[in-house]
C-alpha cells in the first residue's frame, strides 16, 4: 500500500525471524546449561505459557482473574492422576489436563456475564479460594498439605528424567501455545475478544455474542493454565499445593501487567521479569554480604517497588519498550 505499512510489515517479519532465532537459540542453549540455570529457564518457559493464557483472558478479553494458579493446579493434579495413577500416556494426559482445567474454568467463568471490573476480581478470588480448599482436602489427588510425588513420564519412547530433555517438551508446548496465541489474535476470535474488552455494546451490534465470547476466552485461557500446570507438576516432581496459591495467582497477574497486556511478547517478558528479578536481587544481596535471613524481606520489598515503578513509568508494560527498541534497531539496520 504505502510506505508506513511497508515498514510495519517488515518490522513484523523481523519480529517473526527474531522469534525463530530465539526459540532455536534457547532450545540449543538448554542442552548446555547448569542444573540451576536450566531450572530457571524451565520455570520461565512454563510461566510464559501460563502467562499467554492469562493474557488472552485479561489483556485481550479484558476479564481479570486472580485464580490462574489454581487453574494451573487443576491441570497439574489432573495430569499427575491421569498419568501416574491411571496410566494414561503423557501427551494425552497433558491435553486432558488442559481440558479439565478448561471445564473448571468455564464453570468459574459463568459470573463474568454479569460481573465487571472489581466484582469480577472478587469472583475469581473466590474461585481461587474454593479450588485451593479442594486441593487441601483431596488428599487422594494432591497429597494435601504433604504434597505428592509425580514421576516424570516417558514421551514417545524418550525418557524425560533428564532435565534438559524434559525442557524440550516444555519448550515444544510453549512454542505451540505461542503460535496459537499469535494466530488467534489476528483472526476473528481475537478481534471479538478485543471488541468485548474495548466496547461490549458495540461488539454486540457487530454480531459478537458476549456470553459465548467470554466463555470461549475463559475456556482457552484456563486450557493454557492447565497445560502449564501439568508441565509444572512434572518439572517439580514433588508437587506441593503451595505452588498454586493465591500468591502465585497474583504473581501471574503481575506478570501480564508488567510484561504487557494483550501481547505475546508481554507474556514472555513478564515471565522473565517475575522469575529473574528475585534471583538477581538474591545475587546482589550475596555480593553485598547480606545473610539469607535478612535478604528475604528486603528482596520482597524491592521486588514490589520495581513493580510499582514499572506501572508508573511504563504502564503498557515491557513489551512496549521492547517494541520501541526493536523497531528502532530494525529501522537503523535496514537503512
Amino acid at each position: 500500500m504505502n510506505l508506513e505499512s511497508d515498514r510495519y510489515r517488515s518490522v513484523k517479519a523481523g519480529n517473526r525471524l527474531g522469534a525463530v532465532v530465539l526459540v532455536l537459540g534457547v532450545g540449543i542453549a538448554s542442552q548446555f546449561l547448569s542444573g540451576s540455570q536450566l531450572a530457571l529457564l524451565t520455570v520461565i518457559t512454563i510461566y510464559a505459557l501460563a502467562g499467554m493464557g492469562l493474557n488472552l483472558l485479561t489483556g485481550n478479553a479484558g476479564l481479570i482473574s486472580i485464580a490462574h494458579a489454581a487453574f494451573m493446579g487443576v491441570g497439574a493434579f489432573s495430569a499427575a492422576y491421569l498419568n501416574v495413577n491411571l496410566g494414561v500416556p503423557a501427551l494425552p494426559s497433558i491435553l486432558l489436563a488442559g481440558g479439565i482445567a478448561a471445564a473448571v474454568g468455564l464453570l468459574f467463568g459463568l459470573p463474568s456475564l454479569r460481573l465487571k471490573g472489581v466484582y469480577l476480581v472478587m469472583a475469581s478470588f473466590s474461585a481461587q479460594i474454593i479450588l485451593f480448599w479442594f486441593f487441601e482436602q483431596a488428599r487422594w489427588l494432591t497429597g494435601g498439605e504433604d504434597g505428592r510425588f509425580v514421576e516424570r513420564p516417558i514421551v514417545l519412547g524418550i525418557d524425560l528424567q533428564e532435565g534438559s530433555r524434559y525442557y524440550l517438551l516444555v519448550l515444544a508446548f510453549a512454542v505451540l501455545g505461542a503460535v496459537a496465541y499469535a494466530n488467534l489474535l489476528r483472526t476473528r476470535m481475537g478481534r471479538a475478544f478485543a471488541a468485548v474488552r474495548e466496547n461490549p455494546r458495540a461488539a454486540e451490534i457487530m454480531g459478537v455474542n458476549l456470553f459465548r465470547t467470554k466463555m470461549t476466552a475463559f475456556a482457552v485461557s484456563t486450557f493454557y493454565a492447565g497445560v502449564a500446570g501439568a508441565l509444572m507438576a512434572w518439572y517439580l516432581e514433588f508437587v506441593a499445593i503451595q505452588a498454586f496459591s493465591l500468591f502465585i495467582s497474583i504473581q501471574l497477574l503481575a506478570l501480564v501487567i508488567i510484561g504487557g497486556l494483550g501481547t505475546l511478547a508481554g507474556a514472555v517478558l513478564g515471565a522473565l521479569f517475575i522469575v529473574l528479578t528475585p534471583e538477581l536481587l538474591d545475587g546482589l544481596a550475596l555480593q553485598l554480604g547480606m545473610e539469607t535471613g535478612q535478604m528475604a524481606p528486603v528482596r520482597q520489598g524491592i521486588f514490589g517497588l520495581l513493580i510499582v515503578i514499572f506501572l508508573l513509568y511504563e504502564p503498557h508494560g515491557m513489551a512496549r519498550s521492547w517494541r520501541r527498541l526493536t523497531t528502532y534497531l530494525f529501522l537503523k539496520i535496514s537503512k
Binding site: L184, T187, R188, M189, R191, A192, A195, M206, V220
Partner: peptide, 18 residues
C-alpha cells in the same frame, strides 16, 4: 474487520491453525 464478524465462521481452532 470486526464488521465482518458475523459473516466469518472460524472459531478458536481454525484461528489457531491459521
Amino acid at each position: 474487520m470486526a464488521g465482518g464478524h458475523h459473516r466469518l465462521k472460524s472459531g478458536i481452532l481454525r484461528g489457531a491453525l491459521y
